[in-house]
Amino acid sequence: MGNGGFLSELVISRNDLFYGFYITVLVSLISIVVGTILGVLVGVVLTYGNLPARFLARFYTDVIRGIPSLVLILTFFYVLSVIGINLNALQAGIYSLCIFCSAHVAEMLRGGLQNVHVGQTEAAKALGFSFRQTFTFILMPQALRQVLPTWINTAIETLKGSSLVSIIGVQELILSTQQIIARNFLTMQFYALAGLLYFIACFSIERFGKYLEKKVAIK
């Protein structure tokens, strides 16, 4: 044991680590992108839908947000195979993270849209804008800017949530790390290394978020 051992083990395992990290980033990116798109759709229904639609959307977001991510992932993994939808672990993991992300995005978008001052809608109406135009050019640009910090948070939480798909056997960073540890028993070092890699990924998202905020800030 000792640093010499760690460094040489690190070199030996670098491919497994890279692959695991790659899967983590892949799963997270897909989940964030698809989850956000889905979340925006649900969020719009949640804010502007008719009563039955809003009820369904509300039910969806409340239920998803009331379930821990781990339980969501496990439920997807076990239940879907039983009802005839055969997904491998990677697909189940991505789908459950998409849904997780979408529920949070929906709720934050609802908040953002409702926070836009009612005078904005009135001015748009007075100018003769249709609802679609008001939504596209006046409401969304303001709501999106407002929820940007929260969205970055959700993106980071989704990335961290991807660690849980290791439990259903997806070959992402944690599972790869555990397999490496099973070989060389450098438990503390390699978990710390995995932590460092997650840190770098999350921190990058945070930095990117700050950059975005500055770029789109309303002067």
């Binding site: 005078g119 904005q120 009135e122 001015a123 109406k125 007075a126 100018l127 003769g128 050019f137 006046i138």
Partner: peptide
Amino acid sequence: RALTGMVFQSFNLF
């Protein structure tokens, strides 16, 4: 609505 133009107390500029 497009037949009239309204100016608001709180401006309501975008």
